[in-house]
Amino acid sequence: MAKAKITFEDIAQTVNVPAGTRVIEVSEKIGAGIIYGCREGDCGTCMMHVQEGWNNLTVPSVLEEKVLKENMAGRHDRLACQAQILGDCSVKPA
């Protein structure tokens, strides 16, 4: 299976994951600082900033786009409970 590396900048930790893994699955296990609320893409609590590899995450769904907009997300902000890792990237809490 294809692998990808995701780095959580706030704890300076990189994890090698199977492509398609959601950021939430990794960040919770490793104790990164992204905070979660509803865990289903509705509340916007888990907004994270993608420092590098913006294009290596799945494209946001219409629902995620809506929630990001409601929460005044910046250009490279995503919801960690929704975004899936396809290639190397680095993220930190927004």
Binding site: K5, Q13, T14, V15, V17, P18, T21, V26, K29, I30
Partner: peptide
């Protein structure tokens, strides 16, 4: 430094 953890080891 920068040790990379494997996802499988996190479970």
């Amino acid at each position: 430094a920068n040790r990379i953890i494997d996802f499988a080891d996190l479970n």
